[in-house]
Amino acid sequence: MRVALNPKILLAASLAVLLVLSGQYFRLFERGWFALQEWRHADAWEARSVWLPDYRVTLDGQPIEGLDEDLSALTYDPDRKTLFSVTNKHQRLVELSLDGRLLRSVELVGFKDPEAVEYIEPNVYVIADERRQQLVRVQLDENTRSVDASSAQKLSLGIGTNGNKGFEGLGYDTAGKRLFVAKERDPVRIYEVRGFPYGTSAESISVHVLEDRKRDARLFVRDLSSLEYDRQSGHLLVLSDESRMILELDVEGRPISSLSLRAGQNGLAKSVPQAEGLAMDDEGALYVVSEPNLFYKFEKPAR
């Protein structure tokens, strides 16, 4: 005996299943709960955090003149008061002014797929080679025209190798000497590396790689594009291209504030198309680079 099913019931059931699956894929339920918590605890969290909701765009999608390929990653150099990024097509290290002007381009030799760069100390940076899952310590001064990976310190991690879904972002805690490494996705992970880079005169080397699965499970973003460590609060900023969001994590790894990169939010005229790099300067201004070679600056309004 066959039972005829009402087409309206079938449609409603299908829509319900689709809604649940979409909610899981886009982490809509977690994002909704976070938005509620962010609103409820704003007064308590704002004074002791970066507090991303206060930021407004002041340079909105400005083209970077003089570049014929896209940038990946971003870091702030407090000594030069400039920004650095990398390109992975022709493999170059690029220096930018704080208003998004190209200052110079340095050739990268011996790299396969440079995806992230992070300032460590004066003239010292770490570059992440994504496909090799390798971290490379490089030195740079005002006269450097090329950087060769063959003679540089390297650390190969090889954690959860997954093609080009490897290391996509770096952040550095200068006080704690901790290097944060973001794995893009499948799954999203943030590793903490202690002991690298090390001094050239080190007699013994001890490197530790730590994970925080509980923190990573709270990340309701679909991917990781870049990281930034705020030394004043000790909080970590996480950039997600696919979720079009910057997320602030407190010292316990809990999300506490966010900045949307969608049109109409935080003063943006258009959505940021493909955010690839995030940095913060000494004054607390945020910088974002996006494909195709667009430059953004976010600042808090003067009070």
Rank of each mutant, 00 (worst) to 15 (best):
D148V: 05
T174P: 15
R194G: 14
P187T: 07
R145M: 12
G158V: 07
Y172P: 04
R222E: 10
S233N: 09
A175H: 12
I127G: 05
Q133F: 00
V209T: 12
A202T: 15
L179P: 03
A152D: 07
E192P: 05
S225K: 11
L135G: 02
L170H: 03
R213I: 03
R178M: 08
H235G: 01
T174V: 13
L155Y: 06
S206H: 12
D129I: 01
K165L: 11
V221R: 02
D212Q: 07
R213L: 11
P187C: 06
D216E: 06
V221L: 06
Y191T: 10
Q133N: 08
E192G: 11
A149Y: 01
R178H: 15
E203R: 13
L236A: 03
A182I: 07
F180V: 00
F180C: 04
D212F: 10
G160P: 03
L140A: 13
T174M: 07
L135T: 04
F167G: 09
K165D: 08
V124R: 05
H208R: 11
F167W: 03
E228W: 12
Q139D: 14
S150D: 10
R131L: 07
L219D: 06
Y229S: 02
Y172T: 01
A202F: 03
L210C: 06
D173T: 01
G169R: 10
N162V: 10
D186I: 13
L236F: 14
R137W: 05
S156P: 03
A182L: 09
A152W: 00
R185Q: 12
L219H: 04
V138C: 07
A202R: 14
V193A: 11
S226T: 05
A152Y: 00
S201W: 00
G195K: 03
L135E: 02
V181K: 11
S206N: 13
S201H: 04
V126M: 01
L219E: 04
A175T: 15
S151L: 13
D141I: 06
A128R: 01
H235C: 02
L237I: 03
I205D: 02
D212G: 08
Y198A: 07
R189E: 10
E192C: 10
L170F: 05
G199T: 15
K214Q: 09
D141S: 09
I159V: 11
